[in-house]
């Protein structure tokens, strides 16, 4: 074996050892791309699967969102229509409120005017009632005066009639006496004197035609009883005066007396006195028995 061969063998051995070492090192540290590819492929499949699921969920969510949007649109439309309706109702209510406020103001002003009118009418009524009371009192006084004057006139007429009769009787007596005196001169004194009776008779003296106003009987009816007070249906227009005593009687007899304490035009009120039995509404009350 030549030297060159030996050298070549040694160099070849070194080269082979170097290359084999390098190859072993590379193979030992090389990455398994198939396994990596499979892992990546698995991850890709999982990702695609999850992506499809997410896509499906996204589609479902989109569909649900569209449905919800449609529903919300309908609700918005409904609420908008209701809002418009409520706005119209509000406007109508405001118009009605304004109209009612005007009516209320008109009614209030009318009520004030009516109240003022009623107040004026009440005052006028009071004045008229006072005047009526005064006129009735004056009428009663005038009636009393008229009755008194009528009674006095009738009395004077009766007296005048009596005086006329007396005058006639005296004239007749005078004529008879003159006749007697004329006959006495021609007739002898032996005849007896003739007594002449006047034709006109002496009448009784004149009497009052009617009773005085105080003696006129006033009759009324009990209209109300409140404890020891009673109201009767006659008043100042009928001649009732404060302090008058009315006797209350019924079919069974005397019940009580009523002393008048308050007098109005048409009614009077008084306190019960000498109560024998409790009077009732409708019992007769009179100033005379």
């Amino acid at each position: 074996m030549s030297t060159l061969t030996k050298i070549l063998i040694v160099l070849l051995s070194l080269l082979v050892i170097f290359l084999c070492g390098t190859i072993v090192t590379y193979v030992g540290t090389a990455t398994n791309y198939k396994a990596a590819y499979e892992n990546v492929e698995k991850e890709l499949m999982a990702s695609e699967k999850s992506s499809s699921q997410y896509q499906q969920q996204l589609e479902e969510k989109k569909i649900a969102m569209e449905a919800l949007n449609d529903k919300l649109d309908e609700e918005i439309a409904t609420i908008s229509s209701e809002r418009d309706q409520l706005k119209n109702d509000l406007r109508n209510a405001e118009r009605a409120k304004i109209a009612l406020d005007e009516k209320v103001q008109n009614l209030a002003s009318s009520a004030l005017k009516f109240e003022q009118t009623v107040g004026g009418m009440e005052e006028s009524l009071k004045t008229t009632r006072a005047e009526l009371d005064t006129a009735r009192a004056e009428g009663i006084k005038l009636s009393k005066n008229l009755n008194e004057i009528t009674a006095s006139l009738e009395q004077k007429m009766a007296q005048l009639s009596a005086l006329e009769d007396e005058r006639k009787r005296l004239l007749e007596e005078k004529a008879n006496m003159e006749n007697a005196m004329a006959g006495g001169n021609s007739v002898s004194s032996g005849t007896s004197a003739v007594v002449f009776e006047p034709v006109t008779q002496i009448q009784d003296s004149a009497m009052a035609a009617v009773e005085s106003a105080e003696e006129i009987s006033i009759d009324g009816v009990i209209t109300a009883i409140d404890g020891a007070m009673a109201t009767i249906s006659v008043g100042s227009a009928d001649g009732v005066q404060r302090g008058m005593i009315f006797h209350v009687v019924s079919n069974d007899g005397f019940l009580c007396d009523i002393k008048i304490t308050d007098v109005d035009t048409e009614v009077s009120a008084g306190a019960l006195q000498l109560v024998q039995r409790q009077p009732a509404v409708g019992n007769t009350a009179s100033t005379s028995w």
């Binding site: 074996m1 061969t5 030996k6 063998i9 040694v10 070849l12 051995s13 082979v16 050892i17 290359l19 084999c20 190859i23 072993v24 193979v27």
Partner: peptide, 20 residues
């Protein structure tokens, strides 16, 4: 020794090829 070295190198190369 050179033939033995050559045989060893051949074995190493074969083992490397087998590993690969």
């Amino acid at each position: 020794i050179y033939t033995a070295l050559l045989a060893l190198v051949c074995g190493i190369a074969g083992a490397t090829a087998g590993l690969v």
